[in-house]
Structure formats: C-alpha cells, structure tokens
C-alpha cells in the first residue's frame, strides 16, 4: 500500500506539488485528472523518486521511500515502474532489448555494461511482447515503430521490471483514439489480472471514467477531490478545469490538442 503524507515539491518560490496526502491500496487503478501544470506529472516523478521531495513522507508497505538513495533508491525504482507520455524508449536499440532493459536492476553491473542478456530474460521479454501483441516487431529498432506500438513496448519494459506498482504519466496523450484504447485496455488488463496497482495521469475525462476505480482531481499542486467515477459531477469537473460543463471542456481540450 502506498501512503503519501504532506508531500511537497518546491522549485524556488513555486510549489509544483503542495502538501499532497493520499493512500492507494493494492490492486487499485487510480486516475489523476487536472490541467497541465497542476502537478500531476511532478507527483508521479516524486513517487518513482526520479526527483527528490522537498518535504513530506512517502511510504510503501510501511517502508519510508522519501529519503532513499544509492542502491536502495534504484531497487525502489525497479519496483515502481514508470510509463511516459513520449514512451522514453532507447531510440537506436531494438524493441526486445528495450524490454530487457526493464530487468536492469536484477543484473550485475558488468552484464549491463556489456549488454549480456540470458536466454531466460530473452524468453520473458518475448512473452511480454507477445502478450501485448508486439512480438512480431521484436527486432525492429524503437525509432522505426509507431507511437501506439512504442507505448506497448514501454508497458512490456515496465512489466519486465516485475513491479508492484505502475505509474503512467499521460500514457495516451500522444496517441490517436484507437491506439489509446489498445494501451488503456492493456493497462486495465494488467491491473485486473496481475493485481498491480496502477496510478495514471489522464487529461481525458472519458478515459478516466471508463478505466479507473477512483479519480483524484488536482489543482495548483493540491488534491481538490477524490471520488469514484460515478461521483464525478459537473461541479467537480469545473473545480478542476474551471469550465461550466463537460461539453465545454471537450471543446476547450480539442482546441488545446
């Protein structure tokens, strides 16, 4: 279980994340909504510890992870897989190696350095790709596949980490609707079948409503509300996005995109 208490990240005078308290149970699928700049992305980076919190506490199953460093920090990152809006794959390296990079923390340094992968790792990576319907592209270079395919490779890499929790930062914001559905379905399936906790930043309300057990609204680095998908009322939507109705929101988002 992930527990966050008063988590704050300041950049000079600006608080990107401001006193966030939250607890996420095992196997939940949580959607975080909010405008861009509301601190959603910073919050996920704080949880994965790509960045250090300014203050507040962060625990996983009772273990403090806010102040980890060195090998402990790397071990936590491995447990807490991250998926990015721009996929963040290694462009010039083939798909299956990108997936095997997910297992980096289980290998010795020199094996990583020389790029020596075992047959077991190769098999696991292949099965993960197969599960995501990407095994046919295993030997393509990551810069030669489409966005929807790249995001599925990124999910396979995340699963290769054998994580306990997956953080997804706008995983479908750069994808067309059809590919967005494929990727969200995959995340949902992982959440259901493997019982993995998934925390997902989304800018699309429909997606959040359709896929998440629980929705959190963020405004100016703070949590504005927590509710179930059915409780996501127009009032709450306008609280987060500052618009009167959902159709107006759709219109404004369409303009932004």
């Amino acid at each position: 279980m992930l527990q966050i208490q008063g988590l704050t990240k300041t950049y000079g005078a600006l608080s990107a994340v401001d006193g966030v308290s939250l607890s996420v149970g095992k196997g939940q699928m949580v959607g975080i909504i909010g405008r861009s700049g509301a601190g959603k992305s910073t919050l996920l980076r704080l949880i994965n510890r790509l960045i250090d919190p300014s203050s507040g506490s962060l625990t996983w199953d009772g273990r403090n992870i806010a102040r980890l460093s060195g090998a402990h920090l790397r071990a936590w990152r491995a447990q807490c897989a991250m998926i990015f809006q721009q996929f963040n794959l290694i462009q010039r390296v083939d798909v299956i190696t990108n997936v095997m990079i997910g297992g980096v923390s289980r290998r010795s340094s020199w094996r990583n350095l020389l790029g020596v992968f075992s047959d077991d790792e190769r098999r696991q990576a292949y099965r993960l790709l197969d599960e995501l319907d990407m095994s046919a592209r295993a030997l393509h270079r990551a810069d030669g596949i489409s966005g929807g395919q790249a995001q599925r490779v990124a999910i396979a890499r995340a699963l290769m980490q054998n994580p306990q929790i997956i953080l997804a930062d706008e995983p479908v914001a750069s994808l067309d609707p059809r590919n967005a559905k494929v990727v969200m379905d995959a995340l949902r399936k992982i959440n259901r079948e493997r019982g993995l906790t998934v925390i997902c930043n989304l800018h699309n309300l429909h997606t959040a409503r359709n896929y998440c057990d629980r929705i959190i609204g963020m405004v100016d680095g703070r949590i504005a509300f927590e509710c179930s998908p059915t409780e996501l009322s127009p009032a709450r939507v306008s609280q987060v996005y500052g618009v009167a109705s959902e159709s107006e929101l759709d219109a404004s988002l369409a303009n932004v995109d």
């Binding site: 299956i96 098999r123 292949y126 099965r127 197969d130 095994s135 030997l139």
Partner: peptide, 17 residues
C-alpha cells in the same frame, strides 16, 4: 525475418546475434 513462436524467434535471434 518472421516467426510464429518463441522457439522460432530464439533460432532467428541466435543466428542474428
């Protein structure tokens, strides 16, 4: 290069490597 199973894939990658 194409394959329909893990075993085939392993053969292809082994020779490629």
């Amino acid at each position: 290069m194409s394959w329909s199973s893990l075993i085939e894939f392993e053969e292809v990658t082994r020779s490629k490597r």
